[in-house]
Amino acid sequence: MPEIDTFRRLLVLLALGLLSLAAMADPGQAGEALARQILERPANDGRVGTMHFELINAAGRTRSRAALMAHSEAGREVRVAIYFTAPAAIQDTAFLSHDRPRAGDATWLYLPVTERVRRLPASERGDYFMGTDLTYGDIKDNFKFRLTDWHFRADGEADHDGRPHPVLLGTARSAEIERETGYGGFRALVDPETWFPVVIEFADPDGAPLKRVTITEQGLVGDAWTALRFEVVQHQTGHTTRIRFEDMRHVPDLSPRVFDANALAFGVPRIR
């Protein structure tokens, strides 16, 4: 549909123009406007895909993981289920997270060897998720920046993949936020077409470079853009985590059973 593409480009140009004007006037306001664009990025009500992890240590040794990932957003409740399928040592291990603004967050883990579903204590957002370089906060926030966490500032544009990308800077609003997230601040290049921060450089609370998140592939799943391939490089430990999604598809009517803690013990669900 060329008319729609043209229309979308015009909208993007208009948004960029407005952001540039705002940035010239007040970098703080422009930064917050850009953060809002990212925050309000459309999301799927349900999507499912196979998630491939590569965990690479400083010596270059790689450990691999594969899992079925199901993600749903209904209203303000975000639910994520990860059913590990490989390697054999962690087969059938399942992780479930319900992010509920009113009722509070809840997470569960099913370990086949114990044969029981265990509710987990709330993790600090800055705790690392199952040996990856992603924090629980990274997973929950899904490449978005909470307005309550950061002071934002627009910082012009920078080239990435041959295109100009607005630059968003964030500084933690308080020492408490720094402690919770493990981040003191960030610098992000934002894709103006998808509103994904495609490169994020995080600094630790002392301002030292901590890690770089790079989205290397985005795809339209249903009517929402999704990160299909990304990499996290931890500068301080030399670790790298690479994540790739395969067969990611929009499933609007995901069965509640997929996100039912009582059903985790039944193993990887069949989702058509």
Binding site: A106, R119, P121, A122, E124
Partner: peptide, 9 residues
Amino acid sequence: LEGPLGQAI
């Protein structure tokens, strides 16, 4: 009975 208590379960 099982439930959260602040950050704990």
